[in-house]
Protein backbone atom coordinates (compact mmCIF):
# COMPACT_ATOMS: atom_id res chain seq x y z
CA UNK A 1 0.00 0.00 0.00
CA UNK A 2 2.77 2.42 1.00
CA UNK A 3 4.76 1.60 -2.10
CA UNK A 4 1.71 1.98 -4.29
CA UNK A 5 0.98 5.46 -2.93
CA UNK A 6 4.61 6.51 -3.39
CA UNK A 7 4.55 5.14 -6.92
CA UNK A 8 1.34 6.98 -7.86
CA UNK A 9 2.66 10.23 -6.40
CA UNK A 10 5.94 9.87 -8.25
CA UNK A 11 4.16 9.24 -11.54
CA UNK A 12 1.93 12.26 -10.99
CA UNK A 13 4.91 14.51 -10.21
CA UNK A 14 6.89 13.31 -13.22
CA UNK A 15 3.80 13.79 -15.37
CA UNK A 16 3.32 17.33 -14.09
CA UNK A 17 6.98 18.24 -14.67
CA UNK A 18 6.95 16.75 -18.17
CA UNK A 19 3.69 18.50 -18.95
CA UNK A 20 5.00 21.97 -18.26
CA UNK A 21 8.59 21.55 -19.41
CA UNK A 22 8.03 19.83 -22.74
CA UNK A 23 9.43 21.83 -25.60
CA UNK A 24 7.12 23.83 -27.75
CA UNK A 25 8.96 24.64 -30.98
CA UNK A 26 6.11 26.60 -32.57
CA UNK A 27 5.24 28.53 -29.47
CA UNK A 28 6.52 31.86 -30.76
CA UNK A 29 4.34 31.68 -33.84
CA UNK A 30 1.09 31.13 -31.94
CA UNK A 31 -1.23 34.09 -32.17
CA UNK A 32 -3.75 34.63 -29.41
CA UNK A 33 -7.16 36.23 -29.82
CA UNK A 34 -8.87 37.21 -26.56
CA UNK A 35 -12.66 37.66 -26.32
CA UNK A 36 -14.38 38.75 -23.11
CA UNK A 37 -17.94 39.67 -22.15
CA UNK A 38 -21.49 38.35 -22.14
CA UNK A 39 -21.93 34.90 -20.63
CA UNK A 40 -24.78 34.38 -23.10
CA UNK A 41 -22.48 34.83 -26.10
CA UNK A 42 -19.48 33.06 -24.54
CA UNK A 43 -20.40 29.40 -25.26
CA UNK A 44 -21.23 30.31 -28.86
CA UNK A 45 -18.03 32.33 -29.31
CA UNK A 46 -16.00 29.49 -27.80
CA UNK A 47 -17.51 26.98 -30.25
CA UNK A 48 -16.91 29.31 -33.20
CA UNK A 49 -13.38 29.78 -31.86
CA UNK A 50 -12.75 26.04 -31.83
CA UNK A 51 -13.82 25.73 -35.45
CA UNK A 52 -11.72 28.78 -36.34
CA UNK A 53 -8.70 27.12 -34.68
CA UNK A 54 -9.08 24.00 -36.81
CA UNK A 55 -8.80 26.19 -39.92
CA UNK A 56 -5.88 28.29 -38.60
CA UNK A 57 -3.41 25.93 -36.92
CA UNK A 58 -1.33 28.57 -35.11
CA UNK A 59 -4.20 30.61 -33.71
CA UNK A 60 -5.67 30.27 -30.24
CA UNK A 61 -9.02 31.83 -29.41
CA UNK A 62 -9.45 32.48 -25.67
CA UNK A 63 -13.01 33.27 -24.53
CA UNK A 64 -13.64 34.75 -21.05
CA UNK A 65 -16.96 35.72 -19.45
CA UNK A 66 -18.18 38.49 -17.15
CA UNK A 67 -21.23 40.16 -18.70
CA UNK A 68 -21.89 42.50 -21.61
CA UNK A 69 -20.78 45.65 -19.81
CA UNK A 70 -17.47 43.99 -19.11
CA UNK A 71 -17.15 43.03 -22.77
CA UNK A 72 -17.74 46.62 -23.84
CA UNK A 73 -15.31 48.09 -21.31
CA UNK A 74 -12.61 45.49 -22.03
CA UNK A 75 -12.87 46.11 -25.76
CA UNK A 76 -12.65 49.84 -25.17
CA UNK A 77 -9.69 49.55 -22.76
CA UNK A 78 -7.89 47.15 -25.10
CA UNK A 79 -7.89 44.35 -22.50
CA UNK A 80 -9.64 42.16 -25.05
CA UNK A 81 -9.24 41.99 -28.82
CA UNK A 82 -12.98 41.54 -29.19
CA UNK A 83 -15.76 42.20 -26.66
CA UNK A 84 -18.99 40.21 -26.52
CA UNK A 85 -22.29 41.93 -25.80
CA UNK A 86 -25.77 40.41 -25.89
CA UNK A 87 -27.37 43.77 -26.72
CA UNK A 88 -27.01 46.68 -29.13
CA UNK A 89 -24.48 49.34 -28.26
CA UNK A 90 -25.83 52.24 -26.21
CA UNK A 91 -25.60 55.90 -27.20
CA UNK A 92 -22.44 56.49 -25.15
CA UNK A 93 -20.79 53.40 -26.61
CA UNK A 94 -20.90 54.54 -30.20
CA UNK A 95 -17.11 54.93 -30.21
CA UNK A 96 -17.07 51.14 -30.66
CA UNK A 97 -18.12 49.01 -33.62
CA UNK A 98 -20.47 46.06 -33.29
CA UNK A 99 -21.00 43.00 -35.49
CA UNK A 100 -24.11 40.87 -35.00
CA UNK A 101 -23.44 37.11 -35.07
CA UNK A 102 -26.84 35.81 -33.89
CA UNK A 103 -30.25 36.83 -32.54
CA UNK A 104 -31.88 35.98 -29.24
CA UNK A 105 -35.23 36.89 -27.70
CA UNK A 106 -36.45 37.34 -24.15
CA UNK A 107 -39.54 35.57 -22.92
CA UNK A 108 -41.49 35.94 -19.69
CA UNK A 109 -41.81 32.51 -18.09
CA UNK A 110 -44.14 31.05 -15.46
CA UNK A 111 -44.35 27.68 -13.76
CA UNK A 112 -46.53 25.18 -15.67
CA UNK A 113 -48.77 24.81 -12.62
CA UNK A 114 -49.68 28.50 -12.79
CA UNK A 115 -53.15 28.87 -14.43
CA UNK A 116 -52.32 32.32 -15.92
CA UNK A 117 -51.97 31.95 -19.69
CA UNK A 118 -51.12 35.48 -20.79
CA UNK A 119 -50.22 38.86 -19.34
CA UNK A 120 -50.40 42.16 -21.14
CA UNK A 121 -47.64 44.72 -21.07
CA UNK A 122 -49.24 46.79 -18.29
CA UNK A 123 -49.79 43.75 -16.08
CA UNK A 124 -46.14 42.74 -16.39
CA UNK A 125 -45.08 46.30 -15.53
CA UNK A 126 -47.41 46.31 -12.50
CA UNK A 127 -46.10 42.97 -11.29
CA UNK A 128 -42.46 43.98 -11.60
CA UNK A 129 -43.00 47.36 -9.93
CA UNK A 130 -44.89 45.76 -7.04
CA UNK A 131 -48.34 47.27 -7.79
CA UNK A 132 -49.72 43.76 -8.29
CA UNK A 133 -48.45 41.32 -5.69
CA UNK A 134 -51.02 38.53 -5.88
CA UNK A 135 -51.78 36.21 -8.79
CA UNK A 136 -55.55 36.51 -8.20
CA UNK A 137 -55.39 40.12 -9.51
CA UNK A 138 -54.40 38.82 -12.95
CA UNK A 139 -56.74 35.82 -13.03
CA UNK A 140 -54.62 33.31 -11.18
CA UNK A 141 -54.62 31.57 -7.80
CA UNK A 142 -54.72 33.42 -4.50
CA UNK A 143 -50.95 33.35 -3.99
CA UNK A 144 -48.20 35.93 -3.58
CA UNK A 145 -46.12 36.60 -6.68
CA UNK A 146 -42.39 35.88 -6.51
CA UNK A 147 -40.71 38.40 -8.80
CA UNK A 148 -37.41 37.16 -10.26
CA UNK A 149 -35.14 39.86 -11.63
CA UNK A 150 -31.73 39.77 -13.31
CA UNK A 151 -28.58 41.12 -11.69
CA UNK A 152 -27.20 44.54 -12.59
CA UNK A 153 -25.01 44.52 -15.69
CA UNK A 154 -26.89 41.70 -17.41
CA UNK A 155 -28.03 42.67 -20.86
CA UNK A 156 -31.26 40.68 -20.45
CA UNK A 157 -32.11 43.11 -17.62
CA UNK A 158 -31.29 46.18 -19.71
CA UNK A 159 -33.34 44.95 -22.66
CA UNK A 160 -36.27 44.04 -20.42
CA UNK A 161 -36.22 47.44 -18.72
CA UNK A 162 -35.92 49.24 -22.04
CA UNK A 163 -38.83 47.37 -23.59
CA UNK A 164 -41.15 47.93 -20.64
CA UNK A 165 -39.94 51.50 -20.04
CA UNK A 166 -38.78 50.77 -16.48
CA UNK A 167 -35.83 51.74 -14.33
CA UNK A 168 -34.07 49.04 -12.30
CA UNK A 169 -34.77 50.98 -9.10
CA UNK A 170 -38.54 50.71 -9.86
CA UNK A 171 -38.41 46.94 -9.73
CA UNK A 172 -39.27 45.20 -6.49
CA UNK A 173 -37.72 41.74 -6.88
CA UNK A 174 -37.85 38.88 -4.38
CA UNK A 175 -35.07 36.97 -6.16
CA UNK A 176 -32.13 38.31 -8.15
CA UNK A 177 -30.42 35.88 -10.54
CA UNK A 178 -27.51 35.83 -12.97
CA UNK A 179 -27.79 33.40 -15.84
CA UNK A 180 -30.75 32.09 -17.85
CA UNK A 181 -30.58 28.57 -16.43
CA UNK A 182 -30.77 29.98 -12.94
CA UNK A 183 -33.99 31.80 -13.86
CA UNK A 184 -35.51 28.66 -15.32
CA UNK A 185 -34.56 26.62 -12.25
CA UNK A 186 -36.02 29.23 -9.93
CA UNK A 187 -39.36 29.19 -11.75
CA UNK A 188 -39.36 25.39 -11.95
CA UNK A 189 -39.01 25.23 -8.20
CA UNK A 190 -41.62 27.87 -7.36
CA UNK A 191 -45.14 27.73 -8.87
CA UNK A 192 -45.72 31.41 -8.03
CA UNK A 193 -42.55 32.81 -9.59
CA UNK A 194 -42.30 34.98 -12.68
CA UNK A 195 -39.02 35.52 -14.54
CA UNK A 196 -37.70 36.48 -17.93
CA UNK A 197 -35.06 34.48 -19.81
CA UNK A 198 -33.69 33.80 -23.27
CA UNK A 199 -36.36 32.39 -25.64
CA UNK A 200 -34.05 29.76 -27.16
CA UNK A 201 -33.04 28.40 -23.77
CA UNK A 202 -36.59 28.46 -22.41
CA UNK A 203 -38.01 26.75 -25.50
CA UNK A 204 -35.37 24.01 -25.31
CA UNK A 205 -35.83 23.45 -21.58
CA UNK A 206 -39.61 23.29 -21.85
CA UNK A 207 -39.32 20.84 -24.76
CA UNK A 208 -37.12 18.73 -22.46
CA UNK A 209 -39.91 18.59 -19.91
CA UNK A 210 -38.99 21.51 -17.64
CA UNK A 211 -42.13 22.66 -15.77
CA UNK A 212 -42.21 26.14 -17.31
CA UNK A 213 -44.30 27.91 -19.93
CA UNK A 214 -43.41 30.79 -22.20
CA UNK A 215 -45.93 33.66 -22.19
CA UNK A 216 -46.79 35.33 -25.49
CA UNK A 217 -45.96 39.02 -25.77
CA UNK A 218 -48.39 41.38 -27.53
CA UNK A 219 -50.24 38.17 -28.60
CA UNK A 220 -47.16 36.88 -30.40
CA UNK A 221 -45.93 33.51 -29.19
CA UNK A 222 -42.42 33.48 -27.79
CA UNK A 223 -40.69 30.99 -30.08
CA UNK A 224 -37.52 30.63 -32.09
CA UNK A 225 -39.76 30.58 -35.18
CA UNK A 226 -41.12 34.06 -34.44
CA UNK A 227 -37.63 35.32 -33.63
CA UNK A 228 -36.40 34.17 -37.01
CA UNK A 229 -39.17 35.98 -38.87
CA UNK A 230 -38.53 39.00 -36.64
CA UNK A 231 -42.14 39.27 -35.49
CA UNK A 232 -41.39 38.72 -31.79
CA UNK A 233 -41.06 42.19 -30.25
CA UNK A 234 -38.61 41.58 -27.41
CA UNK A 235 -35.44 40.41 -29.14
CA UNK A 236 -31.78 41.25 -28.94
CA UNK A 237 -28.72 40.91 -31.15
CA UNK A 238 -25.65 39.01 -29.97
CA UNK A 239 -22.73 41.21 -30.91
CA UNK A 240 -18.98 41.13 -31.22
CA UNK A 241 -17.59 44.55 -30.29
CA UNK A 242 -14.30 46.13 -31.33
CA UNK A 243 -12.57 49.44 -30.78
CA UNK A 244 -12.07 50.82 -34.26
CA UNK A 245 -12.15 48.91 -37.53
CA UNK A 246 -11.02 45.32 -36.79
CA UNK A 247 -7.75 44.29 -38.41
CA UNK A 248 -5.71 41.14 -38.82
CA UNK A 249 -6.82 38.15 -36.78
CA UNK A 250 -9.78 39.94 -35.17
CA UNK A 251 -11.08 40.85 -38.64
CA UNK A 252 -10.71 37.25 -39.87
CA UNK A 253 -12.51 35.92 -36.82
CA UNK A 254 -15.42 38.35 -37.04
CA UNK A 255 -15.86 37.61 -40.74
CA UNK A 256 -15.76 33.89 -40.00
CA UNK A 257 -18.32 34.22 -37.21
CA UNK A 258 -20.78 35.79 -39.67
CA UNK A 259 -20.47 33.13 -42.39
CA UNK A 260 -23.29 30.62 -43.00
CA UNK A 261 -20.73 27.86 -42.19
CA UNK A 262 -21.24 28.51 -38.50
CA UNK A 263 -25.06 28.52 -38.57
CA UNK A 264 -25.12 25.00 -37.15
CA UNK A 265 -23.10 26.22 -34.15
CA UNK A 266 -25.50 29.13 -33.61
CA UNK A 267 -28.50 26.80 -33.70
CA UNK A 268 -26.78 24.30 -31.39
CA UNK A 269 -26.74 27.04 -28.71
CA UNK A 270 -30.50 27.70 -29.29
CA UNK A 271 -29.94 31.06 -30.95
CA UNK A 272 -31.12 32.23 -34.34
CA UNK A 273 -28.62 32.87 -37.16
CA UNK A 274 -28.69 36.37 -38.60
CA UNK A 275 -30.61 36.32 -41.90
CA UNK A 276 -28.38 37.53 -44.74
Amino acid sequence: MKKLVMFVTLILLIGAVWFFLRTKPDDTKVEKLVLTGSSTVAPLAAEIGKRFETLHSNVRVDVQTGGSSRGVSDARAGLADIGMASRSLKEDEKDLLSFTIALDGISVILNKANPVEALNKQQIVDIYTGRITNWKDVGGNDAAITVVNKAEGRSTLELFLHYFGLKNTDIKPQVVIGDNQQGIKTVMGNPNAIAYVSVGTAEYESSQGAAIKLLPLESIAASVENLRNRSFPLSRPLNLVTRGEPAGLAKDFIEFARLPQVNDLVEAQYFVPVPR
Partner: peptide
Protein backbone atom coordinates in the same frame (compact mmCIF):
# COMPACT_ATOMS: atom_id res chain seq x y z
CA UNK B 1 -21.32 27.08 -16.49
CA UNK B 2 -23.00 23.81 -17.46
CA UNK B 3 -25.74 24.05 -14.87
CA UNK B 4 -26.35 27.79 -14.94
CA UNK B 5 -25.45 29.02 -18.42
CA UNK B 6 -25.70 26.16 -20.91
CA UNK B 7 -29.16 24.76 -21.68
CA UNK B 8 -29.03 20.97 -21.69
CA UNK B 9 -25.74 20.73 -19.81
Amino acid sequence: DLSMNVAGG
